[in-house]
Amino acid sequence: MIEFTDLTKRYGKFTAVEHLTLHVPAQGAVALWGVNGAGKTTVIKCLIGLLRYAGRITVDGCDVQRQGRAARQRIGYVPQELAFYKEMTTYDMAEFYARLKGAPAARIEPVLEQVGLSEHQDKPVGALSGGMKQRLALGLALLADPPVLVMDEPTSNLDTAARSQLLQLLVQVKQAGKTILFTSHRIEEIEALADEVAVMERGRLQFRCPAAELAPRLGLRTQVKFILPGHQLEQALAVLQREGLAARRNGVGVIVEVAPGEKARPIHTLRRADIEVSDFEVE
């Protein structure tokens, strides 16, 4: 569905992306993984036609540089930095983009319903929360029911609850058969959504692997931060360390480093020791 062939993007002497060749199959979900500056966002910007480049990108057979409109008609795009007309209402915004995409007006209400914004359709976009704006961005991307969804760090600016809500929506979108290409540096997001991961470093594709193999292959650890009652902090630390977990104190809580698939382990350990967990956060 999406083909990158020898994609190279240079800014003067700096090479942001170098000889990238990548295939995203129809109805597949591929994540671009890499640290900041790896070239992930540049790849996305080339794909949606914001940057000129050397090499070739096609979407469903349409060349992005020669048939830009046709290629973008097949793409729903969710940017990292949400840039909306703040004075417009949610509905007006959806109506404006529906007209640009050539989507029928009848699509607007079902899409707002799908992303949980029906009750907020008369609110100015500037008054929506960060999570709502991100869901609006997803809704706008789905207005014309495109076969491809492209997202740049879709949950990077969201709190835990909003992130989880959006991720659930994205999983539904994936199950509906969309082809998905997204950038992320969150292992949970990649494990929940991607089939495959393309790991980039300094503009080059390092390797591809199934999403489930990324964390072990990179030796990635997830940090789980527990907020605990003050009088049980020392006891919790001792229990966790006795269980062989890498735990350390952090202010009013304890931070535990675990493999991405073992996030529940410290919770069970603390529960067995009758230690009450007030709250926790996964980073």
């Binding site: 949606i48 409109r69 793409i75 940017p79 983009y97």
Partner: peptide, 14 residues
Amino acid sequence: EQGTLAYLLAQPVT
């Protein structure tokens, strides 16, 4: 400056 131009150009418009 607002970033809305890039988002606009990411739509199927020329």
